[in-house]
Amino acid sequence: MRTLIYLFIGILFGITMFKSEAASWFRIYEMFKFESFHMYGIIGSALAIGIIVVQMIKRFKIKSFYGEEINFNTKEKTLSRYIIGGIIFGLGWALAGACPGPMFTLIGVGYFPIIIVIISSIIGTFIYGLLRDKLPH
């Protein structure tokens, strides 16, 4: 049953990514050119509502559907990993035009070359895992 709920959430996410064109390479390019409000509107409005949702959950100690406490992962307060990792991610995001959610949506659309992007992102994750102890965090 729970699996079906996650599948439903994923389908909703995939449809939203496709229909909003957030999964389009062109929209990512246009965003980094500052030539459209579209992507900023999507992220901005998601964020505005997201902040309210998170604050409500915390303020009113709202429990999950299963009656458990809702935890938020607090990120460790460092600098290097976020700025260096972020820049590396941004370079790839603009080049491949897809981030880790939409790249899966694009398989469903039938763009098979995206599989190259997915496999290399898995390899990238693996190489990070190998080098992790040597990198500044």
Binding site: F89, G90, A96, M103, S120, S121, I123, T125
Partner: peptide, 8 residues
């Protein structure tokens, strides 16, 4: 592109 996304 994919490598940078995954690593980053």
């Amino acid at each position: 592109g994919g490598f940078l996304v995954g690593f980053g």
